[in-house]
Nucleic acid binder design. Sequence first.
DNA 1: CAAGCAAACTAACAAGTGTTAGTTTTTTTG
DNA 2: CAAAAAAACTAACACTTGTTAGTTTGCTTG
Lengths: 194, 194
Amino acid sequence: MNLKPPTRKDEIIKTAAKLFKEKGYSAVTMRDLASEMGIKAASLYNHIKSKQEILKEIIISLAEEFTKGLQDIQKSNLSNIEKLQEIVKLHVSITSQNTYGMASLNNDWMHLEDNRDYYLKLRYNYENEFRNIIVKGIKNNEIISENEDVMLFSILSTLRSLYLWIPKKEDLDPEELSRQLSQVLINGINKKIN
Amino acid sequence: MNLKPPTRKDEIIKTAAKLFKEKGYSAVTMRDLASEMGIKAASLYNHIKSKQEILKEIIISLAEEFTKGLQDIQKSNLSNIEKLQEIVKLHVSITSQNTYGMASLNNDWMHLEDNRDYYLKLRYNYENEFRNIIVKGIKNNEIISENEDVMLFSILSTLRSLYLWIPKKEDLDPEELSRQLSQVLINGINKKIN
DNA sequence: CAAGCAAACTAACAAGTGTTAGTTTTTTTG
DNA sequence: CAAAAAAACTAACACTTGTTAGTTTGCTTG
C-alpha cells in the first residue's frame, strides 16, 4: 500500500490543510503557507495553480471518498442498524486519516468557487441516502418512531465533528472508537430500568 | 421584556454576525459589513472601535450566557439525566435566539485576540462541568458505564451544531425540539427488543 | 431658530493580498 | 559530466485590507 511517494504538490496541500484547520481558508495567506514549507510564496506556483485549487483538492477528494463509501454500504445487505454502524466506521476511518482536511470540508466549503455547487450536490445526496437508511429502519421496526430529521441531524453532527476530537485522543484506535460511538449514538446513554 | 431599543452598535453587531455566519470572520470585510448596513465603511467607526471588537462582543456574550445557564442548572437538585435535559434546553434556547452568533462562537473564536484565552477558559470550564454531570450519572447508576468522553463529545457536538440546523426548521418550536433531541441523545434510536 | 450631537460622508494611509514574469539554483538522469 | 527537468529565487504588479482624519448632514431639544 501507499505505492507512490508524495509529490511536492501533495505536500503543499497537506500543509495547507493543517493551516486551514487552525485559522480557516481566508485567514491563511500564501506567504503563511510558503513559510510553513520553508520556501517563498512565489515558489508555490511551480506546483499549484492557485490558492483556490488547493481548497478544491482538499474538499472534493474527501467528499467523493464519503460518497463512494456510502455507496458501498448501500450495496451490502446489512440491516439498517448495521448500515449505520458501518457509516460510523466510515467517518472514523476517513477522519482519522485526514483530520486537517475534514476541518476544511466542514468549515471552508463556502469558499469554493467553481466547485461549490458540485460539493453541495454531493453533500445533499449523502444526507438523503443517510436519511433513507433511517426511514427504512423505522419502517422495518429496527429504529424508534421518532422524527427522522432529528436523528439524522444528531448522528451526523457528531460524526462531522470527529475532526475536532480525534486528534486529542491519538492513543485510541479507530475500531474501539467506532464501537463506542455506535453504542452511544444508537443505544443512547440512558441506563433505563423501565 | 426587551426594554431598550437596539443601538446602532447593536445593529452593526447583529449584521456582522449574519455575515460571519455565511463567510467567516476573516472573509468579511468592513466594506462588506458597511454595504450590508447601507453605509460606508468609515462610518462604522462612529459606533465600534474595531472589527475585532465586534467579534469579541458576539462571542464573549454568548459564552458567558452558556456559563451562566449551566451554573443555574448545577444549583438545582435535579437528577443527572434531568440536568442533561436542561442542558439540551439551554442550547436550543440560546441557539434559536441567535443562530448567527453561534456560528461565530463555533468557528471564529480562534480569531479572537485579547479575549481568546478568556473564551478558552470559559469553554474548558463548561466542558468540565458537563463531564462531571455525566460522571456522577454513571456513579449513580443513571447512565450506562461507557467512556464518558465519548458521551460528552457526542452530545456536545450535536448541541454545538444546532446553529446549522435550527434555521432550516423555523416552524418547529423550541420545546418540541428539545424533547425530541433529549429523547434521541439520551435514549438512542434503537428499538431494542432485548 | 440656535446649539448640540449622532451619524453619515470623502479622501487617504500603510500594510498585506494573490499572482506573474523572469531568473537562478538544485536535483535527476542518460 | 552534460543536459534536462524540477524547484527554488527576486522583484514587482494591481488590488484589497482595516483604520484614521477631517468634514458635512440632519435630527433633537431648549
